[in-house]
Write a protein that binds this DNA or RNA. Sequence first.
DNA 1: TATCGGTGATTAAACGATTAATCATGCGAT
DNA 2: ATCGCATGATTAATCGTTTAATCACCGATA
Lengths: 372, 372
Amino acid sequence: MARSGPKLTRIARTLGVSAATVSNALSGKGRVSAELAEKIRATAAELGYVPSLAGRALRTGRTAVLGLVLPDIANPLFPQIAQAIELAASSAGYGVLIADSRGDVATQTKAIERLIDRDVDGMVIVPRRGTRIADVGCPVAVIDTPSTPGNTVAADHWGGGRQIAEHLKALGHRRVLVIGNNPASNVQNDRIGGIRSAFGEAAFVEILWIEALEREAGKGCPLGLAEKVAEGFTAFACVSDLHALRALTELQRAGINVPEKASVTGFDDLIWSPVVTPALTTARMDMTRIAAIAVEALVKAIGERDPADAGIGAPVTAENAEVPMQLVVRQSSAAPPTTQFQPQTIANAGTTAPARTTAPARTTAPEGEHQS
Amino acid sequence: MARSGPKLTRIARTLGVSAATVSNALSGKGRVSAELAEKIRATAAELGYVPSLAGRALRTGRTAVLGLVLPDIANPLFPQIAQAIELAASSAGYGVLIADSRGDVATQTKAIERLIDRDVDGMVIVPRRGTRIADVGCPVAVIDTPSTPGNTVAADHWGGGRQIAEHLKALGHRRVLVIGNNPASNVQNDRIGGIRSAFGEAAFVEILWIEALEREAGKGCPLGLAEKVAEGFTAFACVSDLHALRALTELQRAGINVPEKASVTGFDDLIWSPVVTPALTTARMDMTRIAAIAVEALVKAIGERDPADAGIGAPVTAENAEVPMQLVVRQSSAAPPTTQFQPQTIANAGTTAPARTTAPARTTAPEGEHQS
DNA sequence: TATCGGTGATTAAACGATTAATCATGCGAT
DNA sequence: ATCGCATGATTAATCGTTTAATCACCGATA
């Protein structure tokens, strides 16, 4: 909608110069004497001049808009991502157009097409699990996981998994149930891979896939964690705080105290994690940094690109594709109970952390501290 | 970014007609013979013609973009809102530009200005609690609560509160703690107002403001609900599922079974509500309908508006400003325990629902049914 | 002195669509 | 036969910005 704001020619007329000169002065591109440039900038500011993006877009072929495509906008992580991307984009002078891919891959493709039709300069895509982003015809930053081919930047999910596992190992856990949602997710697989690799032979690790379970038992079905505790599992490492929350409440409901009788950990530090009781131990992504890197890479690619060609849309690459995760230790994890069933077959058991008779005093503040 | 797509003139040349005729045929505005129009549409489709939004925007002053301003993008309700708005907007031919107002009012104003500078045709604003939207210079749809002056469309939060209260009352609760966050929020006040009004004299209702408590005891502090249970409270009606979750876990942690010993209800049916144990009884907004009404009203206002004037930006009004909420009964609410402390001073106690010796069998499916 | 080069500014075209104004044409009515 | 009118299509201007090409001017060089 055309604002009231003055146009370029208005400033030009005011100063008795040509519109081109004003444009040059403001962009610093052409040849304009220093004093005139200054005068132009002054009056532009005074009149509250804001360039028309439409006019500029038409001429330059650049809309200064980025598209943001998310696997499922209902994802609880979405706020974090959107906020970070929006911040990074807006401070780089770009607007952010959202596109929801509501579930299936077809909709994701449609969403991408709509963005293309709207002439976005580039887009940030958090792909649906397992999806490979096809050539879209504009610069694309893919945020998935470092192990995914074509990934631009992402948190080091594997490393995050390792941190979680090291934490649990140090507390003395030797029988751990990893709770995932879907094995097709690259992110989840990396997190789980990290967990397994850090435990190595030091603990028995089993995996529970929620979606597989729910396909048989129905959505929202119990995960049967009480039985797992009876089997000797002392820790439940979930690939998302959403699952951790589910596990926590199910355990609590079964009368199993967390963290005294069983520890629960999550991922992503979602909104509720600090405020539930006990607050969730989790591994957090540095979305701000990830977003900054993604947008930076995108902006660079846009700058190098010839606006005329609708050339190849291969994902752009960034300097630091791998951003470390932060372990956030809160109250949901502690040493396993000493009366706990201790499997004899585990090699190296106890070499990392001696069993303690009592849970170590938590040194973290109520709100939870961060440690790398 | 300029796509490869053909331009208007390309189609015109292909058919040997003028660009104006093509434009007229495609928009159905000018006078074009039926057969020629058909031929033009055909070749346009065949060539995959997509109009340049930039060109059109420059000429018409319409960008076909709506802005979406949210109080705090980190709000867990955000996904629902964004998804609904995006859907409604895109099916009306509009794109959605997001703007984060990260907390304070100043940033909200800045965000709005940025959207204006980007020439959005209109915007949807979910105002920060208590904020009154000033004249922004373009059509605005405000989603707050029906009782707010200037509100365009919103859920009937008051009615939602009544439904929650009626539900609890019918279960037999007579001592209810309402848990809110901040008394400055219109939405929260309406929800609480509805709760109070439905209980009337039938129950003793107390309010706990979390922010006030946290100002003294620190963020994430315990709410002291076990003490409240000891005082005889049997139900905790929270103004958001986030608080309900906090209440639920705190109670569980204290060994107070939900719903046997205390009921917990929330609002908004947030992502975790169906999967925690016990699943949360809550009241849900029909965001799809709200978004549809908001966007419709906005589009209408945009259509009536003269693109030339940057006229008044008073919030647009919609037909049905009040969309009913849906009560979703799940497992977190049940009849209060019969051994419970029963205050003698309450009038009408027991007239609505006779005390039961055991919680009634839940007739709802595991996933939770909806009832109006 | 004629020329060259550099500087600072202007001109004019272009981006791609929309639309008011214009034009050509055929047909019915006067 | 001519005027008027409706119809169907074209012309040309316009939105606001950018930018390549051009121009005017001045000092220095050959």
